[in-house]
Computed example of a mutant assay.
Amino acid sequence: MIALIQRVSCASVTVDGDLVGQIASGLLVLLGVEQQDNAQKAQRLAQRVLGYRVFSDQDGKMNLNLQQSGGSLLVVSQFTLVADTQKGMRPSFSRGAAPAEAQQWYHCFVEQCRQQGVHTETGKFAADMQVALVNDGPVTFWLQV
């Protein structure tokens, strides 16, 4: 399971012209689900995302995590994160989980975050989404379990 996290001032997701998820300050998480992912990996990645210290403390150092900063989470499914791009001119998605399985672990990840008391918004799984964000920093990290 892969999470590309971006510290944002604001972020939103629109599907067919309708706003489906929106946050102010917090993290935008682009989430990719691989074939061997499971509930344990979803839980571990949620812990890492929520605990990762990417927000500035009073001295301007990245020492605070999402919960300490009081931020929110916007989670968007992104199957292209699991692409194999090592050869050729077209990505292979053979490492990606089947859609039903990916959706199950995507929702498991979201629920793990909500259970920790973090305000969590989402996109719409498998939809054609338009994601808007203001990357704060910019600060972007790749987390994988």
Rank of each mutant, 00 (worst) to 15 (best):
Q103M: 10
T122K: 00
S56D: 12
Q36G: 13
S25W: 12
A126W: 11
D59W: 12
R114P: 03
G32K: 06
G60K: 00
Q112L: 03
V76T: 04
R114E: 08
C113R: 01
L66P: 05
K124P: 12
M129F: 01
P99W: 00
V20C: 11
Q22H: 15
R90W: 08
H107W: 08
L74G: 07
L50N: 13
Y52A: 07
Q112V: 05
A98D: 15
C108V: 15
R90Y: 02
M129C: 03
G117S: 08
N63R: 14
R90K: 15
Q115P: 09
W105R: 05
R48C: 01
V75L: 05
A83R: 14
G60W: 00
Q115S: 15
R114C: 06
T120H: 04
K61C: 10
D128R: 11
K87Y: 14
L64T: 02
G60E: 03
G123N: 05
R48I: 07
A83M: 11
F55N: 00
V110A: 02
Q86R: 11
Y52L: 07
R53P: 02
E101F: 09
A46G: 10
N38R: 07
S72W: 03
L28F: 08
L45H: 00
V75R: 03
V49K: 02
R95H: 10
P99L: 01
R53S: 01
E121D: 14
L74T: 08
Q22R: 14
G26T: 00
R90A: 13
D18E: 14
A98P: 06
Q36L: 12
M89L: 14
Q78I: 00
Q103L: 10
S92K: 09
Q47K: 13
M89W: 15
Q103E: 13
S25D: 15
L73G: 03
C113H: 01
G123R: 02
Q36M: 15
V118E: 02
D57G: 07
F125W: 05
G60Y: 01
V54S: 08
T80A: 07
V29L: 09
G117F: 05
L27N: 01
L28V: 13
F109Y: 09
E111K: 09
V54Q: 06
V49R: 05
V82F: 13
H107N: 13
G88W: 09
L81K: 10
S72C: 10
G123P: 03
Q130W: 08
S56Q: 12
Q36W: 08
K124F: 08
S94K: 07
T80L: 12
W105S: 01
F93E: 04
A42D: 06
F93N: 04
Q58M: 14
S25R: 14
E34C: 09
T85D: 10
N63Q: 15
C108Q: 12
L30G: 04
V20H: 06
Q115I: 07
V76G: 01
T80P: 08
L27T: 02
Q115H: 14
F79S: 05
L81N: 14
A24F: 05
L50P: 13
K87A: 15
D16P: 04
Y106N: 07
G71Q: 03
S25L: 12
D16I: 06
W105M: 11
T80W: 10
Q130K: 09
W105P: 05
Y52K: 15
A46Y: 06
D59A: 12
V118C: 06
K41P: 12
L30W: 03
Y106Q: 07
Y52D: 04
Q112I: 05
L64M: 04
Q22L: 15
D84W: 08
V75W: 00
